[in-house]
């Protein structure tokens, strides 16, 4: 029963994409799109505090963005610490690894409470954007 849940959860946002992420251990090894992610687009998403929102909490090696948070680990070197598959699961739904995590689930709407109308039923990022961000983070090797 528990194993069936993720498929249902991801199916709830599947209207936006045909992807149904398959979790293996602490990773989603397979990309969610046929086309590979584009690191430059991923960097722009990470730097944009209304799209990726990453810099609100994480410091990152993006020097032109001066105001970066210190609430979460630095993204510098994250591509050396984690595989693309591990990065993908942490973006898609970090709660799978730590239910108490501060990190929002970027591609799951399961279990959310009181979501504003404008965001109802929508994940934070689209699958293409998830792949772009994974591709960018994988380049951060030191």
């Amino acid at each position: 029963m528990r194993r069936a849940l993720p498929a249902l959860v991801f199916a709830s946002v599947a209207g936006l994409a045909q992807a149904e992420p398959v979790v293996v251990g602490d990773a989603i090894p397979a990309p969610l799109t046929a086309a590979p992610g584009e690191p430059a687009r991923g960097r722009a998403i990470v730097a944009d505090r209304t799209r990726g929102l990453c810099l609100l909490c994480h410091p990152a090696p993006i020097p032109e963005e001066r105001f970066q948070g210190n609430l979460a680990p630095s993204l510098a070197g994250v591509g050396a610490r984690l595989t693309p598959g591990q990065l993908r699961l942490r973006l898609v739904d970090s709660r799978r690894l730590n239910p108490e995590t501060l990190m929002p689930a970027y591609f799951s709407t399961a279990g959310l409470v009181g979501v504003a109308d404008a965001w109802q039923g929508r994940p934070i990022l689209r699958v293409e954007e998830i792949e772009d961000v994974v591709a960018y983070l994988a380049t951060l090797r030191d």
Partner: peptide, 28 residues
């Protein structure tokens, strides 16, 4: 203490546990 919204955060997470930290450039 209830997590809410698309970003799934509670008041307590920022204003209790993480108070004194920096959200982007701003002190919490």
């Amino acid at each position: 203490r209830e997590r809410r919204g698309q970003l799934n955060l509670s008041c307590a997470q920022c204003h209790e546990t993480l108070a004194g930290g920096r959200l982007a450039g701003a002190n919490i």
